[in-house]
């Protein structure tokens, strides 16, 4: 699945394509189909020499895609499979805490994964413009309910029901790097009960 940027707004994140960059070390964080972006990078020119200083932190995607085996075969210095981001997070924070400038960060997979890893790297002091990102796989969204502040993962429909407070929310393209989430706003506040049918916008 690929993202469309048509008709969107400037706060909606845009993603690029991972390319090898010079650096003292290379940290890849990926989920699901993000594995394909890493495999593509190492199949391309200028990347083989990086393997000895590469660490890959990988977790299955929200739709169950798990390409651990293929990634492990790449022969990176370190390969680590986590069941999900919350499990990988302490490891990443530990890595950032002891890393030096020159470490290259490559984030790929779903927007939720990219956003959360980016948020944690920013907190560790890296400018958000410093990391490479590439979207792969599912387009489901991580959405914050602006009313109860609860985050609903893997949102597929618009509108959707907040998994915390139960309000009907429409999904905006407005995006917060700090929260690593899109914004959900009550759709029937002015006319309670008048909720348009849910449309599957993200898959």
């Amino acid at each position: 699945m690929s993202l469309s940027y048509e008709g969107t707004i400037p706060s909606r994140p845009r993603y690029g394509q991972l390319t090898p960059r010079p650096g003292s070390g290379h940290l890849f964080v990926a989920d699901g189909e993000g594995a394909d972006a890493i495999l593509a990078l190492f199949a391309g020119p200028g990347a083989k020499g990086m393997l000895a200083t590469t660490q890959i932190v990988y977790m299955p995607g929200p739709t169950g895609t798990d390409k651990s085996a293929e990634l492990e075969k790449l022969g990176a210095d370190i390969f680590f499979r986590a069941p999900d981001y919350s499990t990988a997070q302490p490891r990443l924070k530990r890595l950032f805490g002891s890393a030096h400038m020159g470490l290259q960060l490559y984030l790929t997979g779903t927007e939720g994964l990219i956003g959360q890893a980016q948020r944690d790297a920013i907190e560790a002091g890296l400018p958000h413009t410093a990391m490479q990102t590439e979207h792969r796989g599912s387009t489901v969204r991580r959405v914050q309910c602006v009313h109860c502040k609860g985050i609903t993962e893997n949102v597929r429909t618009d509108p959707f029901v907040c998994s915390h407070c139960g309000l009907n929310l429409f999904v905006r393209d407005h995006y917060s790097r700090r929260l690593a989430a899109f914004q959900g706003v009550n759709i029937d506040a002015e006319d309670p009960g008048q909720v348009p049918p849910q449309v599957e916008r993200f898959a």
């Binding site: 960059r21 003292s24 400038m101 890296l126 400018p127 413009t129």
Partner: peptide, 9 residues
């Protein structure tokens, strides 16, 4: 830059 420092820093 050669050593991988980002422009933002």
């Amino acid at each position: 830059r050669t050593l991988g420092w980002p422009e933002g820093a």
